[in-house]
Amino acid sequence: MRDRVHSLGYAAYERLLRWELSGTPSHVAVIQDGNRRYARKEDVETNQGYTEGAETTESLLHWCDELDIEEVTLYAFSTENLDRPEEQRAYIFDLVEEKLRTFADADRVHDAEVCIRAIGETEMLPERVQDAIDYAEARTAQYDRLNLNVALAYGGRAELLGAARAVAEAVEAGEISSGDVDVDTVEDRLYEGPTRDVDLIVRTGGDERTSNFLPWHANGNEAATFFCTPYWPEFRKIDFLRAIRTYQNREESWRTTRARRALTLVRALENAEVEQARRVLGRFRDALPSREREALDEEYEAAD
């Protein structure tokens, strides 16, 4: 009876969260933290934590497809993880190899038109993992409905350093001039994978840091962040919906801030420019809280 009540309560809360959402991010990046701590908590082998975490990853992709999210980047294996015990690394590599091949052949992946890419220093990975990467990328290269980037042997500083070196080499070789270096110049030399900036970073496991993950695409875009305490194998759909609600609230706050700035600018203009300014402000008006919209309308009426 208790399980049934809990299940009904969970379903009701999920429906409430879905009802509250008015939009979703285009690109979600996920730091899947806590597999080992989950295993210790449950008193099971460490490898079991990674196995259950991989099942959560599969669920996440299904949720993203349901919500029409266009891009997902998973922090699967960092360059720092290469320092872990050999037995752990071997199991993780086996699991990554298996999942890449399984995803590449899964009907649900092809039905959802998922394009799989690996980003990072993949040449540092065992050959069998590199072969699995090549297989998954080749099998899904024709799709673009949902882009899945898997960060393997990835480090954000290493990515930026590699791009900086590539730009410097191009300048030295005379391929470009230093004065022509711009955002596109750098982006062209980042890891091939992400097709857009990150809107939302999700981190499980309780730590509140982004761990050198996608600094160009996330920090540069001031992505919303959602930190939560469940370990990755425990992460549920309602946790993901709460993360998206955080992103939505952040976007609404930004729209309100931009509207208030526009309003301040309009009020500072001379009368001759008021009509043009009103047309500009009209694009921002709906982002203001209702009381401010009413005050603005009254102010315009008094000026007419």
Rank of each mutant, 00 (worst) to 15 (best):
V114P: 08
G206M: 03
P233L: 02
E192P: 02
R4W: 12
S26W: 04
Y91L: 14
A29F: 09
A259V: 11
S26Q: 13
T185E: 12
A12F: 05
T246G: 05
H27W: 09
D134Q: 13
E14H: 03
S7G: 12
H27K: 04
D239T: 04
D68T: 07
A112I: 06
D3R: 12
L60C: 03
W19M: 15
F93I: 00
E87C: 00
R84L: 11
S78K: 05
R18W: 01
R278C: 08
T246D: 11
R291I: 10
G34Q: 10
V274M: 09
E222Y: 15
L8D: 11
L60A: 03
T51F: 14
V150R: 06
L241S: 03
R128T: 08
D144P: 10
D239A: 05
T210Q: 00
K237Q: 15
S7Y: 06
F77P: 01
E222A: 15
R18T: 10
L200D: 04
T51P: 02
E299T: 06
F213W: 05
E97S: 14
I116S: 06
L82V: 03
T225I: 11
A272H: 04
T229N: 15
L152W: 13
S178C: 09
A168T: 14
V28Y: 09
D111L: 07
T51L: 15
R128G: 02
L74P: 12
R261G: 15
G162E: 02
A302H: 13
V280K: 09
P233S: 06
R117H: 12
D134V: 07
F240R: 01
G155M: 06
L61H: 04
G206P: 04
T57S: 13
R139F: 07
F284R: 05
K99P: 00
G220N: 07
A141D: 13
A170L: 07
R283K: 09
G282R: 03
A39N: 04
R157V: 11
R278W: 08
V72E: 01
E172K: 11
T257A: 15
R258V: 02
R283S: 02
R267P: 09
L146C: 07
E270C: 05
L269Y: 07
F226S: 15
E292T: 10
H110F: 12
T51E: 13
S290Y: 01
R189N: 12
R139C: 11
Y154V: 03
L60Q: 07
H6R: 06
K41M: 04
T257D: 15
D180N: 06
R145I: 09
A277H: 12
N81H: 05
D105Y: 02
A295D: 14
L100R: 06
V167W: 12
E70A: 08
S178R: 10
R89F: 11
Y135H: 09
C115T: 01
A112N: 09
L265H: 01
E70C: 00
Q276K: 03
A112D: 08
Y300L: 15
N147M: 14
